[in-house]
Design a protein around this nucleic acid. Structure first.
Lengths: 182, 182, 182, 182
DNA sequence: ACTCCCGGGACAACCCGTTAGT
DNA sequence: ACTAACGGGTTGTCCCGGGAGT
């Protein structure tokens, strides 16, 4: 990703955060990066291309975070699951994680409309699933943890009435505990 | 819901199934019910109104199913959770359940774009959550089951590479087992 | 064709005449009929649709003229060819015929870009050809006359340096003479 | 024409053949010659310039062919007309002639949109016309042959339903015969 | 309880040509 | 001789809703 491309993606994220995906138009992005529409289109051949760029960058960032957390975990068992849980649900939600969540929420609409945009995620999901089920003594439990994480994420994303902080932390911690026995 | 309204909602579902949400336009719906656009708007004041109608009907159908399954379950503990699990993931997926899933997938895009459309779901989620956490001896486990169900559903909805049938059934069964101890 | 549709086609013709096909945009048409783009699009679902409408109307008008001239010709031999020649190249070019020519010139660009637009012409050409070759004693001569007419028309259309009036009339007259022996 | 220019024109022709004029964009040409758009514009100051280049090269090739055929014809009377007929309608259409035809068809759209592009043709048409009418004993017949050729060409170009091969050859042969008496 | 027309606004995609740099 | 980046502008298409009429 070139410098301009990153600047454009940054602008796109800002728009999603500020105004919602519905307002993520090429024009808006162009205005936000202070560039002409033609300029934006030079770096991303289509709007879908841009959205895919957005998603891929997000995935990449998430992966890095997971990898880092994984490295810091001494217990090998369920290490990856714990890393994912911690990456998705940090004990004290920082600004960055909130931001990511909201961007994801926005992109959800985009991918739901056009399944092709999910492509970058598909392969990854497949790999992850294989890893989780083959590495674990109890693949069923592993998948439950994984699915539960997705569920929490989905509810967060949609701003559905969530649990109070205390209970929520308990849920995440329980999942973390469970991960030690997979 | 009047007869015409139901016919319109049926048409809308058909369109979502056949062409995807992106093609769910008032014009398309009108053509599908063999009515003019004005006619459709006579029954639903706006497009959002129609989508809300779609969602509410879907929720209603789901609730009925859950209630029915709940009635058939003799063991009181975690009865509702089991009913929900079975309603969402029938042992042998029938045509109707597949259909519902795909409609939901479509609507996901709509609600992700416009949060107001989620309104009908909010209150229900709140109630459900209160019920699950207060009724259960182990609220944390109850929520995990609930979240896991959402996670599975999300993955299904997006057509992400799923588990093979065997493993998937094991996951659901394990959740069912867990529900007996909440 | 409804009243509005005809008014729109009229406007489109006016634009082609005045500004050239390159300026035949939906927006321009809308402005010319004093209607919104949405209004125009209600009557013609796409620009191509509008152009096809233009062509069909033109063909229809030409056919009527030919039919009329054919009726007025007592000699049966080559009657149709003569009618076509006279319709295309009136002895004293009137305003209407010039207008038609220039509209055709404009549309040429459109059809050359998108062959589908020619569809309305194809069937007609086929019929005409069959008629000319089967009805004539000398089909070869008939086709030559027909082709020559097309050639003259093409040169006119493109505004290529034409013959002086005298010679041109001689050419047309010779074709008329030839038509009497087919 | 420099080497690069010819390579660019070749690429442009390939695009017209493969995708139609509508896709003849500077970008596409650049991609086809494996050069940047700027590079193309370095050799042709504008798109129109490029199209004119295309047309001029085509004309030039046609002229060479005509000249050659003219040289091979011993009978002086109507020699040029016969050469043109044979150049345009070879007895057995070769690959090259088909190709040329299709390129012309494509360019038709371009010139119909922008008359300025015809400029290179105008002078030539004028000269040709003068030559044909002054050289011939029967200028009217000469022009009819010329026009008929244009007509056949036009019909070919547009892919309008043509005559069967037999009849078509008869038509061309008759024109050739006629040319011997001009 | 509808239908026919229409207004109005938005957006993606496309494409040409220029300029700074090498 | 050529590239990368960008500006600026255009156009087709789409879609929602309102309003007059029946």
């Amino acid at each position: 990703l070139s410098g301009s491309q990153n600047r454009i993606l940054d602008a796109a994220e800002r728009i999603v955060l500020r105004d919602g995906v519905a307002h993520l138009t090429l024009e808006a992005v162009a205005a936000e990066v202070q560039m002409s529409k033609g300029g934006v289109l030079y770096h991303f051949r289509s709007k879908d291309d841009l959205i895919i760029g957005l998603i891929e960058r997000l995935i990449c960032q998430y992966d890095q975070q997971v990898e880092q957390l994984e490295g810091a975990d001494e217990q090998p068992k369920g290490r990856k699951l714990r890393a994912m849980l911690r990456a998705s649900f940090p004990e004290e939600p920082c600004e960055a994680s909130r931001r990511t969540d909201r961007v994801c929420a926005g992109l959800l609409a985009a991918v739901a409309t056009n399944r092709d945009l999910l492509e970058p995620l598909r392969e990854r999901t497949r790999e992850l699933r294989t890893y989780l089920t083959e590495e674990a003594n109890d693949p069923v439990a592993a998948m439950i943890i994984h699915y539960a994480a997705d569920g929490i994420w989905l509810n967060d994303i949609f701003g559905l009435p969530g649990l109070n902080n205390e209970l929520r932390n308990k849920v995440v911690n329980r999942l973390v505990e469970m991960s030690k026995n997979v």
